[in-house]
Amino acid sequence: MSDVVVRPAVAADAPRLASISRAAIAAADVYPPAQRAAWASRRSVAAHVRYIEVTRVLVASVDGVVAGFASVALSPVDALVAGEVDQLYVDPSSGGRGVARTLLAAVESAAREAGLASLVTHASWRAVPVFERSGYRQEEVESVTLDGEVLTRARMSKPLGRAMPA
Rank of each mutant, 00 (worst) to 15 (best):
W39G: 14
L74C: 02
A60Y: 08
R42E: 11
V65T: 15
A38K: 13
R50H: 12
V77C: 05
S75N: 05
Q35E: 13
F69C: 10
D63E: 12
A79Y: 04
V81G: 14
F69G: 01
I25P: 12
A73R: 03
D29L: 06
A24I: 08
D78G: 04
P33E: 04
D86H: 03
A37N: 14
V65A: 14
L17R: 00
D13G: 08
V72F: 03
A46C: 01
R56I: 11
V77A: 04
V66L: 15
I52T: 14
Y51F: 15
A82Y: 02
V77Y: 06
A24G: 10
V65I: 15
P76W: 06
A26F: 02
A73N: 10
G64K: 15
L58S: 15
I25K: 10
E53K: 10
V54L: 13
A47K: 05
G68P: 08
H48L: 07
S71L: 04
H48M: 12
V10F: 07
V81I: 05
V59E: 09
V62A: 15
A27K: 02
A70I: 02
A37V: 13
A18N: 01
A26I: 03
V54N: 11
S71N: 11
V10S: 13
S71R: 05
R50N: 04
V59M: 05
A37T: 13
I25H: 06
S75I: 07
S44W: 11
L17Q: 02
G83T: 01
A82K: 00
G64R: 14
L80G: 02
V45N: 07
A40R: 12
L74D: 08
V45L: 03
F69E: 11
Y51N: 11
V66R: 08
A27L: 04
V59R: 12
A12L: 07
W39T: 14
V57R: 14
D86I: 00
T55K: 14
Y51A: 15
R42V: 07
S21N: 09
S71P: 07
P32V: 00
A47F: 09
P33Q: 04
G64D: 13
D29Q: 09
V81C: 12
I25E: 11
Y51H: 14
V30A: 05
A11R: 14
W39P: 13
R36P: 06
L74H: 05
P76S: 08
G64F: 14
R50K: 11
P33R: 05
G64M: 15
L58F: 12
H48A: 04
I20C: 00
G68S: 08
A46M: 10
A26S: 07
R42W: 13
S44F: 09
I20Y: 01
I20W: 00
D78I: 02
R56P: 08
A18D: 00
S21L: 11
